[in-house]
Amino acid sequence: MRNGMWWKSFLAVWMSVVIWAAFYYAPRAKALGETTRVLFFHVPCAWVATLSFIVAAIASILYLRNARPQYDWVAYASSHLGLLFTVLASVTGAVWANEIWGDPWNWDPRQTSIFFLMLIYAAYFALRSGIEDPAKQARLAAVYAIIAGVAMPFFMFIVPRIYESLHPDPLINESGKVKMNGKMLQVFLSSMFGFTVLYFWMLRQKIALLRGEFMLMKKLIQEGEAR
């Protein structure tokens, strides 16, 4: 618990600086106006959602190779965070799109990809909630996470490319990225870094929770046997 203070204080200072910089230090992009600043919070959310998917898939592979509950906790906790961040990314994306495109939802490839991730996470939890036996739950959930992880590249890279002509990609992040000047890039990368650290902090907390539940269950079973 002691080194938890380090994480907390570091994150508090770093993220405060990022928030300040996003509003006062970073310039605005021409086409996006004030809403340029959305970029510094929305894009890291989408990045963290993707990162948690990758972490969950890797943890699932590790679990199938070696059935230690720790790997399952990582996969479970990471998917939990992934669900949170996909929801945050799509809701904030919709708010922003409503302002800049005049329509909260228009099946832009990126929106679609995040939505697809959200569905996978939701299905993953639906599957887990339906299985009683913890080992079986972990095993089948890991298999599903891997299958979904294999399907994701198809979705994220191939499908939007085929439909490029159907889905024009109006000045979303690309324009921000391509035209991003030095100051914006500094803030953007700092924010990405901050969110990544934040993700690992949240992951750590959630894993601690899962480990605690595991210990409690073990303790209760032992007490039951002793009686």
């Binding site: 004030e34 600043r37 708010v95």
Partner: peptide, 16 residues
Amino acid sequence: VVGENIFVVMAVTLLI
């Protein structure tokens, strides 16, 4: 022009 609404930025930041 579009994109000058600072409240959108605020809403997004606060939501997150």
